[in-house]
Amino acid sequence: MSFELDLFSPVKLGSHTLANRIVMAPMTRLRAVNSIPTNLMATYYAQRASAGLIVTECTMVSPLSYGYINCPGIYSPEQTAGWQQVTQAVHDHGGKIFLQLWHSGRVAHSSLLNGELPIAPSAIAAVGTLHTPAGKVDLETPRALEIDEIPQIVKQFRQGAENAQQAGFDGVELHGAFGYLIDQFLQDGSNQRTDAYGGAIANRARFLLEVVEAVSSVWGGERVGIKLSPSNTFYGMHDSNSHATFRYVIEALNPFNLAYIHLMEPDKPDLETGKVINPVLSTFRPFYQGTVITNGGYDKSKGNDKIETGEADLVSFGKLFIANPDLPKRFIEDVELNPPDSKTFYAQGDKDLDKGYTDYPSLELQPS
C-alpha cells in the first residue's frame, strides 16, 4: 500500500525521525550579545519548534570568523552555555535543532578582528561591504593562509562540533555556501593556490572534505549536513566550471552517509548575471544518493510539488519562518501568512532586539 508524500509526511533524517518535511532554514539574525546566545534567542527558536527541523543561524567556529556584529559563536564555554538554553527550549517544545558551523573567511574586516586581516585561501578581496564598529566599510584584501595553518582551522570546526554536542544539539550543518571560507576554497574565483589546496577540483575540494570528515568523526555522518550554493554570486563568487566543481563535491560526499545536503537555488541577483546554473536541484540531484533539502523561495504548493515528485526529501523556508513562527500549522490550515518586515531582519544596535524577531503573532487557539 502506498500513499502520496507531502510536506506534512514524517521522514527519516539520518538517525532522527522528523514529524514533517518543513525545515526552518538557517538565517542570520544578529541578536547575540558579545557573540553569546541569549534567552531571547531561545524564545525565538522555541517559537518555531513545530518545524520538522530547525537549522540555526551561522555560528562562528573561531574569533577570526567574526564576519558580522552580534553573530553567535561556538568556540567558548560561555557561547556553549548560551546555546544550551536554546536547545533546551526547542526540545521542551518537541523540536529538533542542528547548529550551523561557519567560518566567514574573507567576508570579515580587520576592525572586527582586533586589527588582524581576514584569512582566505588566496589574497583576493570579496566584493561588497560590511557593517563594523567603525561604520560601513568595503571588504579588504585578506591574508592567504599558509598551508600549515589549514589543519588548525579543520580542528576549529571539529571543536565546534564537539561543543555543539555539549550544548545539546541534535546534529550540525556545515556552511559550505554563500562565499564563506569553505566555499572560498572550493571555487576557483576565490582560490588561486598552487599547493595541495588549489588548482584541480580535487585539490580545491580538499578543505571541504577534510572538514566533513573531522565533523563526522565527532557526530557520525548521519547527524551532519552541509549547505551548498552552486549558483551563488554574492560577495563576487564565481567558478570557471560550476557544474564540474559541484558535481565532484556532491559525488564525493556520498560515502560519508550524511544526514543531508542542503542545496540552494539561485536568487534574483544570481539569475540577473545570466551565467548561473538554474535550476540547481534537478541539475545535481542525480549525483547524490542520500537525502536532499532544497531551498529557493518556496511556498506550500511549490514545496509540496518537490516532495511529491521525489526531487527533494525536505524543503527549507527562510523569510516565511521569520514572520510565521507556527508556519507548519498555517500551511496545514491554509490560512493567511504574516508578511515579513525586511527592516527588522537584522538587529539595529542593542535596543528593541525583540522587534521583528519574537513578536510576530501565532494563530489564536480556536475555541473548543
Rank of each mutant, 00 (worst) to 15 (best):
V11Y: 12
V55K: 00
F331T: 11
L99G: 01
F98L: 00
S282V: 03
I153G: 01
G199S: 02
Q184L: 08
L7Q: 06
F284P: 15
Q152D: 13
A164H: 13
A177L: 08
F234R: 08
V224Q: 12
A202G: 02
H16L: 15
D6N: 15
P286I: 08
R204C: 10
I36E: 08
D359K: 04
L13D: 10
G73L: 00
R48Q: 03
I293D: 06
S65P: 02
T56K: 10
L145Q: 07
Q84V: 01
F185D: 12
D183A: 03
R48G: 03
E213N: 12
H16C: 03
L209V: 05
S301K: 15
I277F: 03
A177P: 12
S104R: 01
F234N: 07
T43L: 06
N338I: 10
K300E: 07
N114A: 08
S229I: 04
S216Y: 14
T87H: 06
I119Q: 13
R193I: 12
I332L: 13
P26E: 05
F169T: 04
G14K: 07
V211H: 10
H175P: 01
A51H: 00
G176P: 00
K155V: 08
G128H: 13
L145I: 10
A202S: 05
F317N: 04
I69E: 14
D188Y: 04
L139Q: 11
V154C: 07
S242N: 07
A312P: 04
S76R: 01
K96M: 09
I147S: 15
Q152K: 14
R330W: 14
T56V: 07
T294Q: 11
P10F: 12
Q289S: 12
L5Y: 04
A205W: 10
